[in-house]
Design a protein around this nucleic acid. Structure first.
Lengths: 358, 358
DNA sequence: GCAGAATATAGAATCGATTTCTCTTCAATA
DNA sequence: TATTGAAGAGAAATCGATTCTATATTCTGC
């Protein structure tokens, strides 16, 4: 393993000159640049970023802490982050907190010890980032979820409007008995979706019976359980709004098991689009978040914060970044349709019974 | 930001003692350990891993280069890697090569410059790792794909047996006209799956018409295109073996568009299981790779290599790691069934024509 | 051709940890 | 009491870059 001194010796120049070449300093004479580069090629020299990081106090590395790499929502976000990071010479240390606040804390400490320049965080509990101690360590951009009332650096989607528009879609199809399967309500993504839903119902003076409000936890299993609950009600809803991709899958499973036809007997609207939404039977109507774009924007915001820090020589100041709220897109496919009048539904159910026995 | 000297001063000990405490050296007296720890707590001191890495020439960081974070196969592998890495104090720098050999090369260079201790690599082209230059830089464990004839450090699945068993399943159901949609054949995963398929056919003296062999590229679109191709043949197959998850989705889309009933008119067997295989209509019969376990095993293999290197003081030697080939599991669900006798199929096709027009 | 400014380069200090070396202190043992 | 050894203080070297300072060199204008 060669060092900058080996290169300097071979090229017959000083280490400062080699460093100048490495950092494209304009003061180095072209003739020397050539000699130095030739020496670097000859020894297949690659400067040690660790040493460089120690000296310049920048690692060109950021940490990304997410709740679940397995969720296609996050993988698309990762793609956007990675792309933008790579374009700017940054590497990304990925940490999967697995929805565990303790593990999340542990990862944040590790990232700090490794002196990452900044962090992108999809927090699992609202408490962890409240601590200003953590914010003092490095710039943080929140993704997808923010604590209630948070207005700082973050990239999220306009969950309220999204849920509102989605629910309007169901109402406009003629649905009056609409149920919801929510996620956790202590973070913005869960709560705002519910509030948007509720507002749409209220505007139309539609009731939301207690039984029609099922609280899940964004996991597949909760969608399944809440789905069974709803479908077995004496008066089941004619449409269900499921607040994320995994719960929608669980819900579809419940439909399948109870042989409930979708969309004839029940319309399903799911939050989060994903590559295979369009391959389901029926093709799912979803609310698509601009996942890739969220990743890109979050990384760009973090880069701006890092730049500002560098320019102000470590002092906070300059333009403060504020929460960026991206628009979503309603993708109407085949899982939502006008409700069938009540007696028709009962006929439908009768048919289902027969096919159950057959 | 405090340094080890600040701690030493505050605790009234030497820096060597603080270092001893940090590294759990048994020579430091318990009383001093307490005093040092109190000082560290008081200043919220977190030792600089960058400085440490420079000195001890280990970063406790590994690189992971994969072809597509968006593929659930890889995200499950990542989970396994992350878990095992975290348990051993390692961090993971994730790089998504996006199936681009040039980008893969770029990432390998970056990882080297950052002095990662080792690399896990799902290579996109067989050429890149052949270069011994790269292997000299750091230990590498290949995942999922190896160059043909490779026997070094790698964790893959037994693709040959998997494809063989899967094809046997189709044959035992009574299928005689079986087609395949393969991936690229220049890497082990693509080729071995095809070979296993071919062997099963040969044993039963079943023909493989040229038209029944469709070469895709592991992307969704190719599964769709190859699927259309197969379904429009004058004599379409009664069963199709699709060699990865994305192509299976594309194939299912082709089925849907042509209104081909699965499994009545056509059986589909897909390589790769994923969380939502069981939520399709029909539920997909798949060959499930132990993805999480692959990640775990690969990380463990890399850790063993690192340990061996440390013990031999940087000299290669000791036990050489060899390719680990994990078993797969055939998950029979509803997309495969016995073929319908020919005249029934024609009836079926007739129905299809009608419903096409309707 | 030369003073003085501008600039290229050499040499040394630096980042913050680990580690080595010398030397002191104190306790246990013969 | 003398001897041995352990624990750790204190100072300095080290990892491999960057960067500051001082020196050497080139350039400009008269």
């Amino acid at each position: 393993m060669y060092t900058i001194r080996d290169i300097a010796r071979l090229a017959g120049v000083s280490v400062a000159t080699v460093s100048g070449v490495l950092n494209n300093k304009p003061t180095v004479k072209p003739a020397l640049v050539g000699r130095v580069k030739k020496a670097m090629d000859a020894l297949d020299y690659h400067p040690d970023q660790v040493a460089r990081s120690l000296r310049v106090r920048r690692t060109l590395t950021i940490g990304m802490v997410i709740a679940d790499v397995t969720n296609p929502f996050f993988t698309d976000v990762i793609r956007g982050v990675e792309k933008e990071a790579q374009r700017n010479g940054y590497s990304v240390i990925l940490c999967d907190s697995n929805e565990d606040p303790a593990l999340e804390q542990h990862y944040l400490s590790t990232l700090f010890a490794r002196r990452v320049d900044g962090v992108l965080l999809a927090q699992t509990s609202s408490s962890s980032v409240q601590e200003s101690r953590i914010h003092k360590r490095f710039p943080i951009v929140l993704i997808d979820r923010v604590p209630l009332g948070f207005t700082g650096a973050a990239v999220i989607t306009d969950n309220f409007s999204a849920a509102y528009e989605g629910t309007r879609h169901l109402i406009e199809l003629g649905h009056r008995q609409i149920a919801i399967i929510t996620g956790q309500l202590n973070l913005s993504n869960g709560l705002d979706r519910f509030e948007g839903f509720r507002k749409a119902l209220q505007e139309e003076h539609l009731a939301l019976p207690d039984k029609y409000l099922q609280q899940g936890n964004f996991q597949l299993d909760s969608g399944y359980r809440c789905g069974l609950e709803l479908l077995r009600l004496p008066v089941p809803p004619t449409a269900i709004f499921s607040c994320n991709n995994k719960m929608t899958l669980g819900l579809m499973r419940a439909l399948g098991e109870l042989h409930v036809n979708c969309p004839q007997a029940l319309s399903v609207l799911g939050f989060d689009d994903f590559e295979w939404s369009a391959y389901f039977t029926p093709r799912l109507t979803t609310i698509a978040q601009p996942t890739y774009e969220m990743g890109r924007q979050a990384m760009q915001m973090l880069l701006r914060m890092l730049q500002a820090l560098a320019e102000n020589d470590g002092q906070a100041g300059g333009i403060q970044e504020t929460t960026l709220r991206l628009k979503v897109e309603l993708r109407v496919r085949d899982s939502t349709a006008a409700p069938v009048p009540m007696h028709d539904v009962q006929k439908e159910n009768a048919t289902v019974e027969i096919s159950n026995q057959g």
